[in-house]
Amino acid sequence: MAEQLEQIRKEGMKKMLIAGAFIVLIFTLILIFSASYDVGPVFVIGLCVSVIVLSCIYGSVKKKYVAAYKELYLRDMLEQEFEEVTVDFENGFSEEQIAKGHLLTLHERFYSNDYVSAKLYGIPFECSDVHIQDVVRSGKHTSVVTRFQGLYMMVPLKKKFTSWLVVREKEFLDNGNPRGWLSDMPELEKIEVEDERFNELYSIYASDGTEAFYLLTPAFIEKLIDFEKRFEGRCYFGFWNQKMHIAIDDRKEHFELSLMSSVDEHVLYHHRTEVLMIKEIIELIQKECEVI
């Protein structure tokens, strides 16, 4: 398995080296001719083309390598921890699914991959990596800002409820009420629970206060406080349509690896930790989840 993967990586690196050597050769020729001709514009265009060509090759080689790694190792890691595993490493949640959740605000760019659907202790769950970026234009400058990057998860809940509840970890510049102007969401109201620690940590928006308290029992509140301590990054929870949505903005692209280094124990340990993170989330909220 490791040799097969290493071969793919080496082949990829070879392609990169050949492309690199070819580009260096062309630039050497350009420099030789520069003594007799003005090659300034050709040099600049050549540089741009080289960067594009190298990026394309790197992208395609890395994609092939990562896909092979995920099929060979990651699928196995997931199957060791969970039951009835279905994966789609290429794709993730659709933009529409995330938009319907109203937990995250969508911006210009949306990417999602590493979709996993499985069961743990009979609890079915779906999760995927989500990356949301905003393109900010100010005068002549354009910059890309990451608004969310991390794990997004959906788990069915035992309790029957009809309202909407959004619990978001507080941040310096809070986005305020998650219900936008043109949202199809019902009116949301900011509420506070009896636990001061929870109120300091999270902002709670609910369409029905009584139902929000029904979902956020004192025991579950403790779990969510514990959740924030255990997981790096900003945590968001949404409750609607009999499901709990969990988003952890840890600014990490999970299950990724570099083409430059081969798969070793360190990489495997790192990815196993990421798989165990999913398991830990389910175990933490297990009592509230529906077993199917």
Partner: peptide
């Protein structure tokens, strides 16, 4: 009982405010 507890907690939290 869970609904009643939720209603009671919500009521008491509003009373506190």
């Amino acid at each position: 009982e869970e609904h009643l507890q939720a209603a009671r907690r919500f009521y008491n939290s509003n009373v506190t405010l």
